[in-house]
């Protein structure tokens, strides 16, 4: 039996109906029962409004409101994210930008990627520094405050990179060493560029802003400290790599199979020499016999 036929058969149960006389009698009985609590009919156009309002809310308004909320939230959040991308210190959306950067670091997988992002964000701070410095509409004090805020944020980014270097596991296996070396080289190269560009900024800042100059100089020092740490790490990793390869060679030399092989070679050589000497003595004796 197909499902269609089955459903048709089930639908035939609609023929089950209450007895018509019971239906009528029961209606009268129920109406008499409710008669005591029933009130005078006072149905007007207001009731139509209430009923239509309720239906409208349930059928159209609720889904529409939900749709609008979803749409508003998605569009709004993407607008905020975009707008925050161009924000600078002092703007309302700048904390959003920093929070998004933190999230980006948190969700990225792998140490290398995290370090790259941290350095990338530090570079962004330098761009922001340039943008604020080039603005002519800001008051000097206000501008200085913003520049100080950017450099402070840069310091935070740099400290985070430094922290990353400190937390690197130096006792890992070979693949860990390779990865650490790669990270250290990246940090070293990138922070060198960062320090250079910051140094240039420090030089361009006029002597009339000693406060900013001091902050930038401090930032340069911090970046350079990171470069030094990264270089040190590179050296350590290289040394460790050399030590590992030397150990491997020594280990190979001390392999018992190989030593045995060598002695075997030596034994072969000595036995060959013995054969040769035996041949020589034999030929000598033959020669003597001929002479005799």
């Amino acid at each position: 039996m197909t499902e269609e036929k089955l459903i048709k058969k089930i639908k035939s149960l609609k023929n089950v109906k209450p007895r018509s006389e019971w239906q009528t009698l029961n209606r009268d009985f129920l109406l008499s029962q409710i008669n005591q609590t029933a009130e005078e009919k006072s149905f007007g156009w207001q009731d139509y409004v209430v009923a239509f309002g309720s239906l409208f809310r349930q059928r159209l308004l609720e889904p529409a409101v939900v749709m609008l909320l979803v749409l508003g939230f998605s569009v709004g959040s993407s607008l905020v994210v975009n707008a925050s991308f161009y924000s600078l210190p002092g703007d309302g959306l700048y904390p959003v930008k920093l929070a998004l950067e933190s999230v980006q670091i948190a969700v990225s997988s792998g140490d290398e990627r995290k370090v790259e992002l941290k350095i990338e964000f530090a570079k962004k701070r330098i761009n922001e520094f340039d943008q604020i410095a080039s603005r002519s509409d800001d008051q000097t004090q206000e501008k200085n405050d913003k520049l100080a805020a950017v450099v402070q944020e840069l310091q935070r980014n740099v400290a985070s990179v430094q922290n990353h270097i400190n937390n690197i596991d130096k006792d890992g296996n070979q693949s860990d060493h390779d990865r650490t070396l790669r990270i250290a080289i990246t940090i070293s190269n990138e922070t060198k560029q960062l320090a250079q560009s910051l140094d240039q900024k420090a030089k361009t800042i006029s002597e009339t802003d000693p406060e900013i100059k001091q902050i930038v100089d401090q930032a340069v020092e911090s970046v350079q400290a990171v470069t030094v740490s990264a270089d040190k790490l590179v050296e350590e990793e290289k040394q460790s790599a050399i030590a590992t390869s030397t150990d491997q060679i020594i280990d190979q030399d001390n392999q018992p199979g190989e030593v045995l092989g060598e002695s075997k070679d030596l034994t072969e050589q000595s036995s060959q020499a013995e054969v040769e000497s035996a041949d020589n003595s034999q030929s000598e004796s033959t020669a003597t016999n001929i002479e005799n």
Partner: peptide, 18 residues
């Protein structure tokens, strides 16, 4: 809509609605 109207009327204890 018919149901909603019925509900409104029942709420008002309308005997005919019942």
């Amino acid at each position: 809509l018919k149901e909603k109207l019925l509900l409104v009327r029942l709420k008002k204890k309308d005997k005919d609605a019942f």
